[in-house]
Nucleic acid binder design. Structure first.
Lengths: 343, 343
DNA sequence: TTGAAAGCGATACCAC
DNA sequence: GTGGTATCGCTTTCAA
């Protein structure tokens, strides 16, 4: 556990010179630098980041706050962030702020205030006003992934656009009875869910299908999507011919439900999702792809810029999705044909 | 951003007294403590953890190394660790060490050596010898979740036992053609996979079914399980009547595959898993439950003890699973009955 | 180009 | 009980 003093002694220079040589800032002759570098290597010198932080005010660490890590989107974003940070030699401190939990409060009230980071990335938090306030009050750059406001930089999928295009895809296939599956009244992601629902509604209205528009509530998970779809599809009289799911997990839940009910996808039911989840391929799900991993990387990029220049104005990056056609959607068939289709 | 000096001044005491009062260690009169506490509150004082660390050598931070965060088991363990740490007021620094990646190397070579933590939890890493060496060389307590060795404390499911009991469950139901799905030759978790396979083998042998024993390789993911199962089940001549899956994701993949192939579960095929994955309920999967979240908490507990007393000998906690019977397993039926079963 | 010395913000030993 | 002071390990003026 040798410190910079040891390195300096070994190299026959002063601490200051050693520091300059190693950190690469300030004037040092090439020869001296060599000597110091060698000495450091010889001694297996590793700088104490604590001491560095104390002295420079920089922690070389980024805080990440998210409500879940055990969900596809979050885990992927997290991996994206992690990779981008490791590349830059930065540490990642994780805060798991479950909505409504008392620990969430503690995270905002006490953990974050310790400011052991140079910047903060909030993922899918859709923070309450006061939470946003306390993050901003830290005086450190903040970037949000998912969401919609002007006070911090944001990286997010263009939700209304995506939902609109998903709906249009089904309309173009001839469907009219198109249901939306996913937004709830007690929703976890008000912005995401409501803006996707809005996109759907608008698209339906534009096509003169406002009367057909209907949505069934479901949490954004596979089992919830399954349950909600069973409910939605059970009534043969009101059964839709196509579903716009708020996300892939819900879509896949719906596909599984359809299979259980003996409804062939897509002959009897078309399903489209949003995400391109890791299971999408397996269920042949047609969907709009977003790549959360890249969103994580983008957030890091944005954050780095803000750390370098804290006066930078907040930026909002609204990502466009790409349609991935698989075989969970197909043209509307006559009722007879659909009914005849085997599972 | 007031420091302890400000608090001291405000309270009319010395820095040392203020420190004692706030940290709760050492003698301070009740009245003084009150005054200091109030002053701190008034000024919104938050101690600089950096300064604290530098001075005490304690970071109040725990490092967590894992190869994935986007998989059920890992995400759950991570959440368990996080919750346990937050409870204790500790930060969590995450290192995502993908197997075989160059960043993995960098994590061990440089990130970990910065020692910005008081202890390390390695999850499902099954570290190479040299990786284990470098973790131990840090001189900080290390706890492994998953794995099997004597050099660090370990929290792990009793894998051979679990696989044995899963196999026995099927044998008791009358099955003889029981296949194992999941272990591979180029396996990611040599210990886990091979010891589960061993448990299966042993159980088959004990029941005089050694000749029937067979295993099909599959990565431990849902899509991989699906593909492997399609392969395994397609040949009607060699098709097993029951499957022991190396984990639930593989088991669920197998169930989905069976459905696609028109095989009723459990009439034509019984499937048992290990995990009690979040999707297990939805697929009515009979499985042996392990609770990764608790394993994370247990690891933290163990680590805390080692931090308090570094001389403690490594402990190995081998967890027993609990059978959760749902309806993916059933008694062996005659071929006729099975063939007649509808999907 | 280099070195001496003053912080950074806490803790902890040792007198009083 | 309380206060002065050295200390943790590094960076960063400021002189030389």
């Amino acid at each position: 556990m040798s410190g910079i003093a040891d390195v300096a002694r070994q190299a026959g220079v002063s601490k200051s010179t050693a520091s300059r040589a190693l950190s690469g800032s300030g004037y040092v002759s090439d020869e001296t630098r060599d000597r110091v570098t060698r000495a450091a290597e010889m001694l297996g010198y590793v700088p104490s980041t604590n001491a560095q932080s104390l002295s420079t005010g920089r922690t070389q660490n980024i805080g990440v706050v998210m409500p879940y890590v055990n969900r596809w989107f979050f885990a992927e974003v997290l991996e994206g962030i992690q990779a981008a940070l490791l590349e830059r030699g930065l540490d990642l401190t994780l805060y798991d702020a479950k909505p409504g939990s008392d620990t969430r409060e503690r995270i905002f009230e006490s953990f974050l205030t310790r400011k052991r980071f140079d910047g903060l990335i909030a993922v899918g938090l859709e923070p309450e006003e006061n939470e946003l306030d306390s993050m901003l009050a830290l005086g450190k750059p903040v970037v949000n992934v998912v969401g919609n406001h002007e006070r911090t930089s944001v990286v997010t999928l263009d939700d209304p656009l995506t939902a609109r295009r998903a709906t249009e895809h089904l309309i173009e296939l001839g469907h009219r009875r198109i249901a939306f599956l996913g937004a709830g009244s007690r929703t976890r992601w008000p912005h995401v869910e409501s803006s996707r629902l809005d996109g759907y509604m608008q698209s339906m209205a534009d096509a003169g299908l406002a009367d057909e528009a209907t949505h069934t509530e479901s949490e954004l998970t596979l089992p919830a999507g399954y349950d909600a779809a069973v409910e939605l599809l059970s009534d043969t009289r009101t059964r839709p011919t196509a579903i716009v799911a708020a996300c892939d997990e819900v879509a896949i839940g719906a596909i599984i439900a359809a299979r259980r009910l003996g409804l062939h996808v897509p002959a009897a039911l078309s399903v489209i999702g949003i995400d391109d989840h890791e299971f999408a391929e397996m269920f042949a799900l047609t969907t709009f792809r977003q790549v959360p991993r890249e969103q994580g990387a983008a957030a890091v990029e944005l954050l780095m810029r803000q750390i370098q220049d804290p006066t930078l104005a907040p930026v909002i990056q609204r990502l466009k999705p790409r349609l991935v056609v698989r075989s969970s959607t197909g043209p509307l068939r006559s009722d007879r044909a659909a009914a005849d289709a085997t599972v």
